[in-house]
Write a protein that binds this DNA or RNA. Structure first.
Length: 443
DNA sequence: GCATCGTTAGAGTTAGACCA
DNA sequence: TGGTCTAACTCTAACGATGC
């Protein structure tokens, strides 16, 4: 069925002309039509006879209305995506009827999420399953509030995508006081929008019980506003807890064990989830890290606490390195060199070790001494750089016992200067090897 | 229905100090 | 000057439970 045929037959009051309409007018006419279509469908779905409850399957009018919903929904989405670059001729095209299951509610939500919130059609369909609008009054008020507080179109879309139920909040009672608090402590509109877009769930917390006390504790430890902004942006989960219960006793415990304020601040801003663990787990980890030989005055100490608290991952990493011949001492050495090496997936460890040991010929246990090298991206960093080193080594241009970190740790510019540009006369294809366009054996 | 609470997992990059 | 190592920093992703 064609869209125009359907609308003219059942909804002539929408005045669907063949002229190109104004986008906004057309959008609302289509949405209005959609509301009417569902009512007609419901009516036509009623069984004509108690003896034949499925008789609607043979009801042509019913099928027309089901087609109508699909068609009008398609029109709405299509209008948004293509209106500006195509003519009105599409109205006469055949549109496939995919399924009779589309509902008026879903279509309205998808349309609203696309048009008013700026979501992509794919994101809107996904998000529409999590939120239902009875009216658009409240979502409109919420969006207006965000825009009045400096949220850009992209930030609004991001905000809604992560927390669609936010659109149903009471803007005056629930949201405005929180926004006003952040402004009162010095957040600019730009900083506020950026921070809340990264961590929208802050706005779901109680102003009196959570936001104000937590802010005050953060302020007392971090001191600078920039660090507070950064902490709030990155620690979306941790800031959903009550700092008075979770943070204060642990901060005191760290101070008792000689951890300086900058390191406590680092733990708060980098790995605040560590502070949300049970007090007994946390204190045990602190003592264990100390017994391993970490210096409490160094930042490595708090990174080790973070790694050790994820005991499940730590154990998996232990097993994974063990498969590559690492002894307990090797593993502890690697952990002391870079605690984050015990916070990786088995897949990551396996892939990196396989490449370095089997393809590059590094000794497995030697890698333990340069454990931070394991953390780099295999595709983006390790393979390109090691390929260059392999070529230079095969040609005898560099010594064969280079440290893994010499190869991987150097900044991009330094590596290119020392290992690519320096040898471009002897090996012109070296840049191609680095970029992956030339095979190691062809260079 | 809406507001709030509670909970982890994973991946990556770079600057700069120090030393031979 | 190059190699080695330490330290610091950045980023992404959801959902079930509970209370009012």
């Amino acid at each position: 069925m064609q869209v125009l045929t359907y609308l003219e037959k059942y909804y002539p009051e929408q005045e669907c002309s063949h002229e190109r309409p104004d986008l906004e007018t057309w959008k609302w006419k289509m949405m209005g039509a959609l509301v009417g279509v569902e009512a007609r469908l419901q009516e036509s779905l009623k069984p004509k006879s108690r003896n034949y409850p499925h008789s609607w399957n043979r009801n042509e009018e019913c099928l027309d209305h089901m087609s109508g919903i699909t068609l009008v929904t398609s029109v709405l989405t299509w209008t948004w995506c293509s209106y500006s670059r195509r003519s009105h001729e599409w109205l006469h095209q055949e549109v496939a009827i995919s399924s009779p299951n589309s509902s008026n509610q879903d279509s309205l939500a998808v349309s609203y999420l696309i048009h008013s919130c700026g979501l992509s059609p794919e994101a809107a369909i996904s998000v529409s399953k999590k939120v239902q609008f009875k009216t658009l009054e409240r979502p409109n008020s919420v969006l207006a509030l965000l825009r009045n507080h400096g949220f850009t179109k992209t930030q609004v879309a991001q905000f809604v995508k992560v927390n669609p139920s936010f659109l149903l909040s009471d803007p005056e009672k629930t949201l405005l006081p929180k926004l006003q608090f952040f402004q009162s402590v010095g957040f600019s509109n730009r900083e506020l929008a950026r921070t809340l877009t990264s961590n929208p769930e802050i706005l779901f917390r109680s102003l009196e019980k959570h936001i104000i006390p937590n802010y005050n504790i953060l302020k007392s430890v971090l001191r600078s506003d920039e660090k507070i902004f950064a902490a709030m942006r990155r620690a979306r989960w941790a800031f959903q807890t009550d700092f008075r219960t979770y943070f204060i006793p642990k901060i005191a415990f760290l101070r008792e064990h000689g951890v300086p304020e900058p390191c406590i601040a680092l733990l708060l801003t980098s790995h605040p989830q560590a502070m949300t663990r049970r007090y007994d787990q946390f204190s045990e980890a602190v003592i264990e890290v100390k017994e391993m030989g970490f210096d409490p005055s160094k930042s490595m100490f708090v990174l080790a606490i973070h790694a050790l608290l994820n005991r499940g991952i730590w154990n998996r990493c232990y097993q994974a390195y063990g498969k590559w011949g690492w002894s307990k001492n090797d593993i502890l050495l690697a952990f002391r060199k870079h605690p984050q090496c015990m916070n990786l997936s088995e897949k990551k460890i396996s892939e990196v070790m396989d490449f370095l040991v089997n393809k590059m010929g590094w000794q497995s246990t030697a890698i333990a001494r340069s454990s931070s090298g394991i953390l780099f991206s295999l595709e983006k960093r390790t393979i390109p750089r090691c390929s260059v080193i392999k070529v230079l080594s095969l040609k005898g241009l560099i010594k064969k016992n280079l440290s893994l970190l010499t190869v991987l740790q150097a900044p991009e510019k330094s590596f290119l200067k020392n290992f690519v540009t320096k040898y471009e006369e002897e090996v012109p294809q070296l840049l191609g090897v680095y970029r992956g366009t030339v095979d190691v054996l062809e260079a």
